[in-house]
Amino acid sequence: MKFIQLSLIASLIMVAPAVNAAQLISAKEAALPSASGTLATRGISRGPSVKLVSPEADTPVSSPIDFKVHFEARGEGKIDPNSVKVVYMKSPFVDLTPRLKGAISPQGIDFAKADVPPGSHTIRVTVKDADGRETNSVFTLNVTK
């Protein structure tokens, strides 16, 4: 009987990390064709600053990842968290915003243990301040496994 209990406990411990991961991008979405066209963003902007904190852009990482983006308003502006839009740059575009809603704040996005399939994933983050000034930033996540 003790062997069965220990075996069950060991199985639960091995499965636990996978249960805590939340899907950011599905394998089906990753298989879509890449969006066509250029992903240009404007140079100088009075809009908020958007910086990818984790994982480091263009650095290979393993899934699950901690997806963290930092927002910083310029001047006296304040970030409008309701304006944040996160799009997976595929054809057609995949709106990731609903999956991240609970992780979005005026300070940024903090989505821990995001499940992302292997591959190169281009994501555009759009944010506005309370005065309507908008910034678009494009990041590429390289997931190895």
Rank of each mutant, 00 (worst) to 15 (best):
E29R: 08
S105L: 06
L24C: 06
A21N: 11
K78H: 04
A31Y: 10
A21H: 01
S120T: 06
M1H: 00
N136D: 13
P98K: 01
T135G: 10
S62I: 04
G43H: 03
S34E: 15
I44A: 13
I4C: 07
V15F: 14
A57P: 13
V84Y: 01
V69P: 05
E72D: 13
G37R: 15
D131C: 00
S7V: 07
A130S: 13
L39P: 04
K2N: 14
K85M: 10
M89I: 00
G108Q: 11
T144K: 14
R42P: 13
Q5V: 13
I9M: 14
V143T: 07
K68F: 09
Y88G: 02
V143N: 10
V125T: 11
G47P: 12
D110V: 09
S62A: 12
F139C: 05
A112G: 03
K2H: 06
P60V: 12
F3Q: 03
T38N: 04
G75H: 06
Y88A: 04
I65D: 01
R133L: 12
M1L: 11
I104S: 02
K28H: 15
K2L: 15
G43M: 01
K68C: 04
L52W: 13
A112Q: 14
K68G: 03
G75S: 05
K2V: 15
D131I: 03
H121S: 03
I25V: 15
T144L: 06
S62K: 12
V50S: 01
V94Q: 10
P118M: 07
V86E: 09
I104K: 11
A57K: 12
P60Q: 09
H70K: 05
P118F: 01
I4V: 13
F139Y: 09
I25W: 07
F71P: 11
A22N: 13
Q23H: 02
A57M: 12
P48W: 07
A103M: 07
I25P: 08
A73P: 03
H121I: 09
